[in-house]
Amino acid sequence: MKSEQMREAVMKVLGRIAPEADLASIDPAGSLRDQLDIDSVDFLNFMIGLHSELGVQIPEADVAKLSSLDGCIAYLLSKSAAS
């Protein structure tokens, strides 16, 4: 999967978690939780959504790597390349 496709997949899941958010204005390097004002429950739903959408396992130890949009895309691309 290419970076742009991965970005679309992540945005799709984010849209379900924060339906009222303006996803186009996200700073890709900034914290998703801060920018979208999502709490720990929303963030876990986001992780579960990524797992369902992309079939990737996200161990607890890796969660910190997914804190930003860029981080998510890089992590998920690396997982998809490894599988």
């Binding site: 720990s40 429950v41 797992h51 161990p59 607890e60 130890a61």
Partner: peptide, 14 residues
């Protein structure tokens, strides 16, 4: 506990 669990079964502190 969470280290042993897949993301779909993870527990939150709350």
């Amino acid at each position: 506990e969470n280290l042993k669990r897949p993301v779909t079964e993870r527990l939150l502190y709350s």
